[in-house]
Amino acid sequence: MRTELVLKSLNTDEEHWHEVEALQTSESTRYIGRAVCALASDPAVMTRTGIPQRVGQLAEEYKFTDIDGRRVPVFTIPE
């Protein structure tokens, strides 16, 4: 996630993050905000209680994108 601290540590900002290779698959902080909004407006949200949710998967299910129009892939830890 491209927090202000992450951007600062890589000597970039929200306007130029795409120029930094390490940030190519990152998402803005608004992406998770859109996930929260999608969940909050879902009348069946209680069916998700106690189950970890992944923003990339929620984006697919609820059809939202990040602020640049991308659907950032679900994060996985490489084996």
Score class of each variant (00 low, 15 high):
R71G: 00
A44N: 08
V20T: 13
A44F: 03
Y31R: 04
R48S: 13
T49F: 09
V36F: 03
V6H: 07
T76M: 08
V72G: 00
E27H: 11
V72L: 06
R71E: 00
Y62A: 02
Q24H: 14
E60L: 04
Q24N: 13
Q53R: 04
R48V: 07
P78G: 09
D66E: 07
D68V: 14
A22I: 12
S28Y: 14
W17G: 04
S41E: 10
T65D: 02
V55R: 02
L5V: 11
R48D: 09
R30P: 01
K8M: 15
G50C: 04
L39W: 05
A38L: 01
R30F: 09
E4Y: 12
T12A: 14
E14V: 15
M1E: 13
V36K: 02
P43I: 09
K63D: 03
A40H: 03
A59K: 04
H18K: 15
T25Y: 08
V20E: 14
V6T: 10
I32H: 00
E21A: 15
E60M: 01
E60C: 02
V6N: 09
A38C: 03
V45E: 02
I32F: 06
T49N: 05
L5S: 13
L10D: 12
S41L: 11
E15V: 15
D66F: 05
L10K: 13
D68A: 11
T76V: 08
C37R: 10
G33I: 02
E14L: 15
M46G: 03
T29K: 02
D42V: 05
D66L: 06
P43W: 08
T12S: 15
E21F: 14
R34S: 02
V45Y: 08
F64R: 00
D42Y: 04
T47N: 10
Q57G: 00
H18I: 13
V74W: 04
R71Q: 10
G33H: 06
G33L: 06
A59C: 03
L10M: 14
D66V: 08
G33A: 09
Q53H: 02
I77S: 09
D66T: 09
W17S: 01
A35K: 01
R30T: 11
G33D: 05
E19D: 15
L5E: 14
L23Q: 11
D13Y: 11
E19C: 14
G56W: 01
P43M: 10
H16Q: 15
P43S: 08
R2G: 13
G56A: 07
V6L: 12
T49Q: 07
H18A: 15
Q57F: 05
T25V: 07
Q53F: 01
L5W: 07
E19I: 10
V55D: 02
S9Y: 07
R48I: 03
L10G: 11
I51H: 04
L7S: 09
H18E: 15
L23W: 07
L5I: 12
R34N: 05
I67Q: 10
I51Y: 01
E61N: 07
E27Q: 13
V36R: 00
L5Q: 11
Q53T: 03
Y31N: 01
Y62S: 00
I51S: 05
N11F: 13
E60Q: 01
